[in-house]
Design a binder for these strands. Sequence first.
DNA 1: GAATAATGTAATGTATATGTTACACTTAAA
DNA 2: TTTAAGTGTAACATATACATTACATTATTC
Lengths: 67, 67
Amino acid sequence: MKNNVKIFRVQADLTQHQLAEKVGVTRQTISLIEKGKYNPTLKLCLEICYAVNKTLDEIFWVDQEEI
Amino acid sequence: MKNNVKIFRVQADLTQHQLAEKVGVTRQTISLIEKGKYNPTLKLCLEICYAVNKTLDEIFWVDQEEI
DNA sequence: GAATAATGTAATGTATATGTTACACTTAAA
DNA sequence: TTTAAGTGTAACATATACATTACATTATTC
């Protein structure tokens, strides 16, 4: 599951730990999502969106062929 | 977890059963998502998007206050 | 060059998304 | 007025998202 979490997290000047706190998960969960090793739930995706002020499409959209 | 799955599924002229088949889950899962009783995974959200030709933001965005 | 911050990741446990089976209700077609 | 299609939902099983704890590596910073 490729995504742009890392790009926008850094752009928002947040560490993994800070983002994790803001969205209510652990640092490890953020790390694994950034690495594409987790298939996060919609609720967590939305929390990340709010935290870095981006939309679902901006952070999590991937075309059908490359899912 | 409110969403617009039902609206766009009907618009795409699909039954719950047909959408479920297209995205590779059971009818029950679609039903529960439409009813807002499940917090679906990103991968499933994307599959639903492809099936009804809509984006994540169109189907699944909800503002922070109403999550 | 030791101390600390930021990150990667492994092992194990828990909560929950999803599957399976099944039954009930509603509605449209026959 | 039955038959079948579409939908809601409950009980139980399984897979996996996420937590917890812990250790390692790589910059910084003192």
